[in-house]
Design a protein around this nucleic acid. Structure first.
Length: 344
DNA sequence: TCCGCTGACACGTTTGAAGCGT
DNA sequence: AACGCTTCAAACGTGTCAGCGG
C-alpha cells in the first residue's frame, strides 16, 4: 500500500469506507451481488468519507469495477469452485460521481456514495453511451486510488449463499417484503390472479432511451495497472474474504498516483451501469492509461481481486477503488468546456 | 438431465403530484 | 395568493421461482 502525493501539493488525502461494518458483515460470508440484464443496484452500496483535500481545489471522484481473474466460478457444496475460463472481458466502465467536479470542501463535508450504481452483465446497452459534442482533454496532475478489500464481491445472477440472502433481507429496506414469514411462497403466487393488477411500467430500455439517467462510461481496453497498484491489490487479497478466512486489515487506503493521461469523453448520470461479472486478465501490464472523464476525477473504484487462499480460490471478488484527480488551479477548470452534469 | 439466465411476480419503500388548511 | 403539511398512487427496488435454452 502506498501513497504518492502530487508533486506540487503534498497530499494527505485519506478515504475511508463509511459503512465498513456492514461491508465486513457481508465480506465475512462472501459478498454476492446480483446482476441483471437491466442493471441491479449494489447492496451495500459504496459510500466513503474523504479528508485531506484542498478546500478550494476541484476534484473528480470515480469508481471502477475490475474483475479479479480469468475464471468463472460456480457454487458447489457451500463454496465456490472454478468452472472454467471467464467470458471475454467487456469494456471497462468507470462511474464518475455526479457531483464531480467539486471543490475539496464539498467532498469532505459529508460522505459521498454511489447508491445508484448498477451492476449489469449486459454489454449491449449502447444507449447508455454519452457522446461529447466537444471532446476536450485535461492534464491531470495526479491520480490517487484507494481500495477497500471488504467491498470485494462475487457477481451472480441468482444468490447462491443463503447466508447472504438473509443478510441482505435483514439490512436492505427494499427487501423487507421478504423479511417476515419467510419468502413469499410460490404457492401464494401460483394462486395467481393477484387482486392487484400489474402496474404498467416503463420498459427500462425505453426509459433509458428517453432519458440520460442511465449512461455507460466510455470503454477502454487500455486500462493498465502499475506494479504498485498490483502489489497493493495482491496484498489485499491475502486476507481472503470468505467465511473462515482471515480478514483483511481495515479498509485499505492504497493510493496510486497515476501518470497524466489524456482522455476525451464526457459522462455523467443519475445511474451508471458498470459491468460486474466478467473476469478480466488480472494484473496485466501497467496502470498508466485509464479512462477518465474529461473533467477532474476523484473517485472510488472497485477491483475484482483474485481468491485470497485455497478455500476461497473460486471466488471472484471485487475491491472498491477510489480515484482522486485534482485541478491545481481554478484556471484549469475555467478552461474546461461545459459539462453534462446531473445529480442523483 | 443439469445448470445458468431471464422474466414474472408480490411486496415494501420512495417519490412527487394533488388536495387541503392556514 | 402563497406557503406548508398530508395523503395517496405510481414508480422503483427487492428476492424468489418457474420456465426456457444451451
Amino acid at each position: 500500500m502506498s501513497l504518492l502525493a502530487h508533486p506540487y501539493q503534498p497530499s494527505d488525502i485519506r478515504m475511508t469506507l463509511e459503512n465498513a461494518d456492514l461491508w465486513q458483515s457481508f465480506h465475512s460470508i462472501g459478498t454476492e451481488m446480483v446482476i441483471t440484464k437491466h442493471g441491479r443496484r449494489m447492496f451495500p452500496h459504496c459510500s466513503v468519507r474523504v479528508s485531506g483535500l484542498q478546500l478550494f481545489t476541484n476534484y473528480v471522484i470515480m469508481m471502477d469495477i475490475i474483475p479479479v481473474d480469468g475464471f468463472k466460478y460456480k457454487w458447489k457444496k457451500e463454496q465456490w469452485e472454478i468452472a472454467g475460463a471467464a467470458d471475454p472481458h467487456p469494456p471497462c466502465r468507470t462511474c464518475t460521481h455526479p457531483d464531480s467536479p467539486a471543490p475539496g470542501r464539498h467532498w469532505m463535508k459529508q460522505p459521498l456514495s454511489f447508491p445508484k450504481l448498477k451492476l449489469t452483465n449486459n454489454t449491449l446497452d449502447q444507449f447508455h453511451v454519452v457522446q461529447a459534442d466537444n471532446p476536450y482533454s485535461l492534464r491531470w496532475g495526479s491520480l490517487q486510488s484507494f481500495s477497500f478489500p471488504e467491498t470485494a464481491f462475487t457477481a451472480v445472477t441468482a444468490y447462491q449463499n443463503p447466508k447472504i440472502t438473509k443478510l441482505k433481507i435483514d439490512h436492505n429496506p427494499f427487501a423487507k417484503g421478504f423479511r417476515e414469514g419467510g419468502t413469499h411462497s410460490h404457492s401464494k403466487r401460483l394462486s395467481n390472479k393477484s387482486p392487484r393488477a400489474k402496474r404498467p411500467t416503463l420498459d427500462r430500455d425505453d426509459l433509458s432511451n428517453s432519458s440520460p439517467s442511465l449512461q455507460r462510461m466510455p470503454s477502454t481496453s487500455q486500462f493498465t495497472q502499475t506494479e504498485e497498484s498490483r502489489a497493493s491489490t495482491q496484498q489485499s487479497l491475502k486476507g481472503g474474504h470468505l467465511s473462515g478466512s482471515a480478514l483483511e486489515p481495515k479498509p485499505s487506503e492504497s493510493i496510486h498516483v497515476e501518470p497524466l493521461v489524456l482522455r476525451e469523453y464526457n459522462c455523467s448520470s443519475d445511474e451508471q451501469m458498470v459491468p460486474a461479472s466478467m473476469p478480466y486478465q488480472p494484473y496485466r501490464s501497467e496502470y498508466g492509461m485509464f479512462p477518465y472523464p474529461s473533467r477532474d476525477p476523484d473517485g472510488a473504484q472497485i477491483f475484482l481481486h483474485p481468491p485470497p487462499n485455497s478455500r476461497s480460490a473460486a471466488e471472484p471478488c471485487i475491491q472498491q477503488h477510489g480515484y482522486f484527480h485534482q485541478y491545481n488551479t481554478t484556471a484549469d477548470w475555467s478552461q474546461s468546456p461545459v459539462l453534462s452534469y446531473t445529480t442523483w
